[in-house]
Simulated scan of single mutants.
Amino acid sequence: MFALDRLPLAERYAELLATEGVLRGLIGPREAPRLWDRHLVNCALLASAIPTGASVCDVGSGAGLPGLVLAIARPDLRVTLVEPLLRRTTFLTEVVSELELATVEVVRARADALHGERRFAVVTSRAVAPLERLLDWSMPLVEPSGELLAMKGSSAAVEVEDAAAALNRWGCGVPEIRDLTAPGGGVSPTVVVRVAWADPSRVSWPIVAPRRRAGPEPRRRDGRGTAKRRRRA
């Protein structure tokens, strides 16, 4: 997960989360003793699903999870942390400066402010919003050959089902639910929902949000709204 030369950076980031992160209300006091298993390792497992040299946008980055962890674990990635709250972007900027993470950019903005301006190979998020809403914020940032990687919990399959109409509206392919596990086990798997475009050749730039139908959208029960479950070691 963390190479030996990157481990000191991860340890310092954990210290900052447990001190300044708690003082500024970015991490709950009860989370401090379990930062490694519950947060850092959980996010570091996502790194194995990201292509080499990819541009990554972390939507609603908060205290930097998973964006900062990805930048620490994978110095080959170009990571943009998108977060609208000043107290969070201030913390993120301070961490980036102290750890000298030259491949990280902090942007204080809502994700939709970047629509039509920026696009990325991978768009990540963790505990930001249900998948249905996340698609509206994230898919306009995903380049034609790119993907959305949303970290989810035990409700991943339910969220995919609930987002069936939105997935169809955006022209997404069949989502995959992946379980990313640490070598040797010992920690809970990281559950990730992967969403890509159904037909990259039909994705034009800038991406225009599709119109919602009037009234509630019925759930689809066909293949497009059904998630594929895949386990990854």
Rank of each mutant, 00 (worst) to 15 (best):
G171L: 00
G171T: 00
G171S: 03
C172T: 10
C172V: 10
C172M: 02
G173L: 00
G173Y: 02
G173Q: 02
G173T: 00
V174K: 02
V174T: 08
V174N: 00
P175G: 00
P175L: 01
E176S: 05
I177K: 04
R178M: 03
R178H: 14
R178E: 04
D179H: 15
D179I: 04
D179P: 02
D179Q: 14
T181R: 15
T181S: 05
T181N: 05
A182K: 00
P183D: 05
G184P: 04
G184E: 05
G184F: 02
G185N: 04
G185E: 01
G186F: 09
V187D: 10
V187Q: 09
S188H: 04
S188C: 01
P189C: 10
P189G: 06
T190Q: 02
T190S: 09
V191F: 04
V191A: 04
V191Y: 07
V192T: 11
V192N: 02
V192C: 13
V193E: 05
V193L: 04
V195C: 13
V195A: 06
V195F: 08
A196W: 07
A196L: 08
W197I: 13
W197N: 13
W197A: 12
W197D: 11
W197R: 12
A198S: 11
A198Y: 08
A198C: 05
D199A: 05
D199M: 07
D199Y: 15
D199I: 06
D199F: 11
S201Y: 08
V203H: 14
V203Q: 10
S204L: 12
S204T: 13
W205N: 02
P206T: 07
P206D: 06
P206I: 09
P206N: 09
I207E: 01
I207A: 00
I207F: 03
V208I: 12
V208F: 04
P210E: 06
R211G: 15
R212Y: 11
R212P: 07
R212M: 10
A214Y: 11
